[in-house]
């Protein structure tokens, strides 16, 4: 499978990365080289093989339904949440106006 300029532009839009024309033109052969190379995976017979889900045998731990049991995973820290925000006003993050 090879990608053309239009496809790469579509993928870049999906990934929200604005590509200039030169960048886009440069990216097409690079992606094609990589995609062409990974396609050798198609040779592998995977009949009856499950895709890997857990790297190391392990089961999902569930946590208790407690509020703010650990400050690192709890709420009540608005200042910390907003500390690095490019725009924060009145306790909110600010973004360019969205029309729904």
């Amino acid at each position: 499978m090879s990608v053309d300029t239009e496809t790469v532009a579509k993928i870049a839009a999906l990934a929200r990365i604005k590509l200039g024309e030169d960048e886009l033109a440069g990216m097409v052969p690079e992606l094609n080289a990589i995609l062409g190379w990974v396609e050798q995976l198609g040779e592998v017979d995977v009949t009856g093989i499950e895709p890997m889900t857990a790297v190391i045998e392990n089961t999902l731990r569930l946590r208790a339904d407690a509020i703010n049991a650990d400050p690192l995973t709890g709420g009540d820290r608005r200042d910390d949440i907003l500390a690095n925000a490019p725009v924060a006003e009145h306790g909110f993050f600010g973004v360019p106006k969205v029309i729904e």
């Binding site: 993928i11 990934a15 990365i17 198609g42 592998v44 995977v46 093989i49 499950e50 889900t53």
Partner: peptide, 27 residues
């Protein structure tokens, strides 16, 4: 950017199984 684009492409509609699922099976 290159890797984000590759990753976006292999997960996108119509390619997911051929790339991602296949790779996880090989894994």
């Amino acid at each position: 950017k290159r890797r984000i684009l590759i990753g976006t492409y292999v997960l996108s509609a119509g390619f997911y199984d051929a790339y991602y699922t296949q790779a996880q099976k090989v894994r």
